[in-house]
Amino acid sequence: MKRSSNQSNVLAPATSGPGALALAIANPGALGTIEAYIGAVNRLPVLTAEQEHELAQRYQEKQDLNAARELVLSHLRLVVAIARQYLGYGLPHADLIQEGNVGLMKAVKRFDPNRGVRLVSFAIHWVKAEIHEYILKNWRLVKVATTKAQRKLFFNLRSLKPDSHALTPEQVEEIAASLNVRPQDVTEMEVRLYGQDMALEGRGTDDGENDFAPIAYLSDEGQQEPSAILEERRRDELHGSGLLQALESLDERSRRIIEARWLKDEGGATLQELADEFGVSAERIRQIEARAMTKMRGALAEYA
């Protein structure tokens, strides 16, 4: 994942003349190959303590971007060396260097030459912090370290493991004690660190079939499809609150007829039985029933 020019251009160097060359060298992809970039970086001169102090003061007091650019260029080899330590995470070397360069630019921007500390000592923290952030965001689809303790464990576990085999209980206890974390945290991080991302769905093969993937054995056959669940929920609402609301929209006689004809558990009343109850003809009961059903359909429309 590469940063946009606005993000990485922390010190806003010039883009023409000598500044263009500086910007090109600060970008690992500008010289064609990572080997060419590293070779160019290693040929850049190293500043003496006096030169570094003078340049840092010029930038701090006068905001001299040329001075800041010289400070950045003279420390690019530091970023290359630090980025090389993180190649084991499987991320592109050029991307790691580019992120480290962003950290270096931030360090130069905040560096105080009057504290008696060399820029290299101050910049290491910023370079590593930027690379760490990049790795945590891009190494896995799911974040593996979200707290300060987890980050510390994530970046130290690989170097503390004696070999490529799984940790023994004794080794887990030893690492947990040295990093001041719980043994179960060490075990969990080891699984995360050395596990691999797996696609939920299989990839298509030449014969048109899919690989055997987790989706084939993680699905619960006893569970309904979401559409079926929604349909069942809608039907329950229709039979419950929807039907009650529709019945409440009827007058007393119409409601009595509908309940007697259709809502009895066993055998509804006949038209003649209801005609005798209300002292009207069976045809009149049929007409009242038809109008009531039409009115109820309108009341149930919002549940359909």
Results as ranks from 00 to 15, higher is better:
F278E: 02
E35I: 01
S227R: 11
P13V: 03
D163V: 10
K148Q: 13
R297E: 10
L136E: 03
D163P: 04
G279H: 09
M296V: 13
I34H: 03
A40C: 10
L44G: 02
H53F: 11
F155H: 09
R58H: 03
P183W: 01
I257D: 03
Y86N: 00
E50T: 01
E52W: 00
S5Y: 12
R118G: 07
P113Q: 00
A213H: 13
E232M: 12
M198H: 15
G222P: 08
I97A: 00
R140C: 04
A299R: 09
A269Y: 12
S159M: 04
K148H: 14
E266T: 15
Q7Y: 10
R261G: 04
F154T: 12
D251I: 03
A49V: 07
L65R: 14
Q223A: 14
V127N: 05
T168H: 09
G268W: 05
A36N: 15
K152Q: 12
Y134L: 07
L263G: 00
N6P: 11
K295T: 03
R84S: 14
A129E: 10
L136C: 06
L153Q: 08
D251T: 08
I97N: 02
N156K: 12
V191Q: 13
D211R: 01
I124K: 13
L55A: 00
G204C: 15
R115I: 08
R3T: 11
H125I: 13
G19E: 07
I25V: 11
I131K: 06
G195N: 08
R158M: 06
R151S: 01
Y89L: 02
Y89P: 01
R3Y: 13
I82Y: 06
E99S: 12
L153I: 06
L250V: 00
S254E: 05
A36Y: 14
W139M: 10
A282Q: 15
D265E: 13
V186G: 05
A49F: 06
G17N: 12
A68L: 05
K106E: 15
L104V: 04
Q184T: 10
A275H: 01
V142H: 11
L87Y: 12
E209L: 11
